[in-house]
């Protein structure tokens, strides 16, 4: 996304739109990204409970992947996974 210049943004760093935090993409802070072995995953959703950035994507009560636009790569999901099916890889 092309970043805006100083003349195009609200003064003082004001955020003038409510509920807009998701628009701030924090994924590029990441050094390591979580990668899941789908065959080993038992969909216990412990990763979903622990993720501090709501970056575990869930559909119909199943873990379906990661929101890489917001995942900062903290590695908590990999650490808490009881099946050790999440690995942290460069990127």
């Amino acid at each position: 996304m092309k970043k805006k210049g100083w003349k195009e943004i609200p003064i003082a760093g004001l955020i003038t739109e409510a509920g807009s935090a998701a628009k701030y993409k924090t994924g590029d802070w990441r050094t390591f990204k979580p990668v899941r072995d789908e065959d080993k995953c038992i969909h216990c959703l412990i990763c979903w409970i622990y993720c501090p950035d709501s970056s575990i994507l869930v559909k119909d009560e199943k873990m379906v992947g990661f929101d890489y636009e917001h995942c900062k790569g903290c590695g908590i999901c990999a650490s808490v996974c009881p099946k050790k099916c999440i690995k942290m890889e460069k990127g």
């Binding site: 970043k3 100083w6 760093g13």
Partner: peptide
């Protein structure tokens, strides 16, 4: 307000 926009706010 980090590396991406802090500078723009100082410019303002």
């Amino acid at each position: 307000d980090l590396q991406d926009y802090y500078f723009e706010h100082k410019r303002q």
